[in-house]
Amino acid sequence: MTGLTRRWFAFVTVEDRSGASAALAGVFSERGVSFGSISTLDVHDGLGTLSVEFTASERLAHVLIRTLGRLAVARGASLVAADDPRVRAVAMLTGESSGATLPPDTDVHRHGAGPEATTIIAGPLAAVETAVARLRHAGCGVEALTVLPPRGSAQSPAHRHRQA
């Protein structure tokens, strides 16, 4: 990344119908921006929330989020910088993790022992990414790492349910 570009997450609530992901992907590809990651969060009552990681300048990031918000399938879109401490993440790993020291601001849940053990880590994105890096180094396999919108944001499923 240059000084101009930053890492961002777009949280986009879309109608649960065919073509929604393609429309969203088109907005990025038309502007030459590739995803770092994309994942589906909650899907409920005909709506789903997608989390999209990408790298761009602040100007381009705002263009993308305004354009995403204009899609016919979109019901809302918000933009959060990856270094915003309100951005949360949850990760699931397999393998023995009890020997590793993990950041104190993560919630860690371990099930089982040895190679079949499962570890679930939740917390601020930066802390979860640090924990995942350490466990990967310790030999654990990373099953998934999902980024969640800040609590209470328009794209937070909990918030959306409260509104409903």
């Binding site: 429309a23 263009v63 305004r66 354009t67 918000g69 204009r70 899609l71 016919a72």
Partner: peptide
Amino acid sequence: PQIDVATTPDDVV
């Protein structure tokens, strides 16, 4: 193409 409707200047994108 996708066809979008806007009715305020602020929504022009």
